[in-house]
Design a protein around this nucleic acid. Sequence first.
DNA 1: TCAAAAGTGTTTCCGTTACACCCATGT
DNA 2: ACATGGGTGTAACGGAAACACTTTTGA
Lengths: 261, 261
Amino acid sequence: MTAHGMSAAEVAAWRARWGEGPHVAADVCIFALREGRLVVLLIQRGIPPYRDTWALPGGFVQRDEDLLAAARRELAEETGLADLDDVQIDQLATFGAPGRDPRGRVVSVVYTALVSYERVAKVKGGDDAADARFFELDGHVPLREGRALPLAFDHAEVLAHAVERLRGRVTYTTAPFALMPETFTLAELQAAYETVLGSELHRRAFRERIEGEGWVVPTGETRGGRHRPARLFRARTRGLEWMRPWPEAKKVPGALSREGR
Amino acid sequence: MTAHGMSAAEVAAWRARWGEGPHVAADVCIFALREGRLVVLLIQRGIPPYRDTWALPGGFVQRDEDLLAAARRELAEETGLADLDDVQIDQLATFGAPGRDPRGRVVSVVYTALVSYERVAKVKGGDDAADARFFELDGHVPLREGRALPLAFDHAEVLAHAVERLRGRVTYTTAPFALMPETFTLAELQAAYETVLGSELHRRAFRERIEGEGWVVPTGETRGGRHRPARLFRARTRGLEWMRPWPEAKKVPGALSREGR
DNA sequence: TCAAAAGTGTTTCCGTTACACCCATGT
DNA sequence: ACATGGGTGTAACGGAAACACTTTTGA
């Protein structure tokens, strides 16, 4: 018995059924922010290989289906969101190493999506689904009850790439806006940036740029906590736009973002 | 007769032979600098579809071949380079729209590579090959004798993505180093940055950063032109590394780099 | 009245920019 | 000598960083 939980006979049966030709799949890394932490949507596999193991949502691209359409379909199915028009969905990379799927050659085109947790929770009822759940991330690794959660196939590697890409983008785009609810405070937005970035930003500079350069528009409302109420803002745009990069510690790019496998 | 130059009967024959399953290809955009201009390697197709039309080098991924290995193979075949260890080769995106190949469903994983033109010219004898040649780029469009060269399949779109990505990277990485010969002057390096970037950089700031932050090491040699000889440098690393982005005019990201098709 | 988070004014710092100038060479 | 491109010194500029401060609320 191997990691994927199929016997040699089962593997042989699959290979015979599928033949030698490659199969093309579309997988999606769906990120959100829950209580100030980055979370990713995983599903628990119901059938071998990797039965009962958690994996990224995905499936085979249909005969006349566009790759992006396949990713959209997966996103809609797993999040329950009806209108995906304003959801960020980007192609990440393609993974096609021989042997990544015991059943045969599977080439996975992986997409990433950023959603507002509040919005998804409203539709799906939060993380209650038995077989689809958001998991917190510790670096690149999803956690369940504080322990690293092993993933099916090469999805750990895929997820690592996705997180790296997201981090990279946050440095110089409005990506985190897509993770926010309809309205939010500047402190919350900064927290989102910092969470994804993994490092702190300077409050003064952050506020000046975000508000001063018009990335957000005040709604006029405020939200009171126990203290002085914060002004609420709305994103000027839900789309991905470039901004001047945030000053930051140096990074090493090569490791992950260079070449999809 | 359609753009691809195959009759309905020929198309039907291919479809019957291939069946419904997808085919996976690896294509490569090989960029270089020739006389201060960005050039891309194209091959002229010898067989239908798109016979005699120019296209990106590429081919089908073999049964147990890794995607990157397939791209490497294409790169080696087309450039004649033996040691590819120090050549930049990165996955760009995957293109898999139904109908992009009249023969059936072809999903193309596209890679980009940056090579030193001098190095390739030494091996291949420059742009003399009958069926493989470097073409200058005007924006995203390859030129032949000053006129836009039409490309096979969706390769115009693919190339546009590749150029955009290259431009984007140049802003904050050492990517242009991979386009330089073994030794070069600071003025030449700056010209490479400016060519790819499409905008000018400030000489004073450029030299200070490139030399001051140790991105290059002086060889001690100089190269005399008609004027004061310039010092020669060697790249500290041939790998891709991040640097602080060059100050620059604002850009719009969405258009091309968002989602591979 | 106090704690805590929101929000602002001001100064320092540092890299970019601009501009002027010197340097080395071929003609 | 001088034109030309390589290369450097220096001051002005502007955004980021640092710090201190005020504001507003609930407890």
